[in-house]
Simulated scan of single mutants.
Amino acid sequence: MSNSFPDLTLNNGVRMPALGFGVFQTPPDQTAEVVQTALSTGYRLIDTAAAYLNERGVGDAIARSGLGRSEVFVETKIWISDYGYDAALHAFDKSAGKLGVEQIDLLLLHQPLPARFDLTREAYRALETLLADGRVRAIGVSNFMPQHLKDLMETASVVPAVNQIEVHPFFSQPQVLAADAEYGIVSQAWSPIGGITSYRGTHATSTFTDPALVAIGQAHGKTPAQVMLRWHLQQGRSAIPKSTRPERIAENFDVFDFQLDTAELAAIDALDRGVRGGPEPEAITLEAFGREIPEA
């Protein structure tokens, strides 16, 4: 990719667009249209997951886009119900079939499963097999905290290329970012503009109305959302904002024509409140979070 639209080099040499498009909570019947809009806007990384139940819509949009397969970086995640070696191999088949692709660019484990970390290890071993066989180009994890990474690396033969975690100005997870950096793992931010702060009720205010972010945006003629995405990109993270509104999809992509200075980056860093919006990774169990992932 050009310097205007940066990419990141993963620890196995694969290049991945730094800015992507997420489809969490996008209704399956709207996904194809929304992803087509994102691809038309210029996004070339699409992030989905088996548990989102909209992989088929992502695949349909890519097929209709007119873009070559190599032009779109496809990322998806295996849900905990399909952990274990054989189950995870089959989960790949399910996802690849729905996406309509033979090779997935990046395949992640969606959550750690602390109470059954043996299943987590076996699922990751399946990812290593898929990587060795060329069915995926890169593998990684999502929502793994430093101890989960340490435990995984006791048996893993391949260091995860990506750890997708909740990161936004109100919850910046510096310890996880540091652990990822130590292992050479790219941190990828979900809810990168803090959308979760506006509907989960975990914060008194939303990132979109935070005075510091508003002021920085006004200084650059940008929205708080654009400021937050620029913050991620300048600090070397991947970010995968989501929206179903064409104007927001375009706005979130328009972040390559300005630069935050050191003081502005520090001011955003200082907004961290240490309050998680998503589920606590240590509390993920099959009993509470397990769900069957359909075959088709």
Rank of each mutant, 00 (worst) to 15 (best):
I80V: 08
A87C: 01
I78D: 03
D93C: 11
H90M: 09
L99D: 14
E75Y: 05
A91R: 00
E75V: 15
V72C: 10
T76R: 09
I80T: 03
K98G: 15
V72S: 09
F73Y: 10
E71T: 06
K77C: 09
D82Y: 00
A91M: 03
A96C: 08
A96N: 07
K77V: 09
A87H: 03
K94H: 11
W79N: 03
L99F: 13
F73E: 05
F73C: 06
D82G: 00
L99A: 15
L99P: 01
V74F: 12
H90Y: 14
A96Y: 03
K77M: 11
V101G: 09
D82E: 13
V101P: 02
V74L: 15
V72N: 12
D82I: 03
S95Y: 07
A87M: 01
Y85E: 08
V74M: 12
G100S: 14
F73A: 06
G68M: 05
Y83N: 04
W79Y: 12
E71I: 10
S70P: 04
L89A: 12
A91Q: 02
K77Y: 08
V74S: 10
H90G: 12
K98H: 14
A88L: 12
E71W: 12
G100M: 13
W79S: 05
F73V: 00
V72I: 14
A88W: 10
I78W: 07
I78T: 11
S95L: 04
R69A: 06
L67R: 11
D93G: 12
K77W: 07
A91F: 01
K77A: 11
F73S: 06
I80R: 01
R69S: 02
G84N: 08
L67H: 10
R69N: 02
H90F: 10
I80N: 01
S70W: 03
S70E: 07
V74D: 13
L89G: 06
S81E: 02
S81Q: 06
S95T: 00
G68W: 04
D86Q: 15
E75L: 14
K98V: 13
T76D: 07
V101E: 11
D93P: 00
K94F: 02
F92A: 11
I78G: 02
A96G: 07
V72W: 13
S70C: 06
G97M: 12
L89R: 13
H90P: 02
D93T: 15
S70K: 10
T76G: 07
D86F: 05
V74W: 13
R69D: 01
S95P: 04
V101R: 13
G97A: 15
G97Q: 10
I78C: 12
I78E: 02
F73P: 02
G84K: 09
D86A: 15
A96M: 06
A91E: 01
L99N: 14
E75D: 13
Y85T: 08
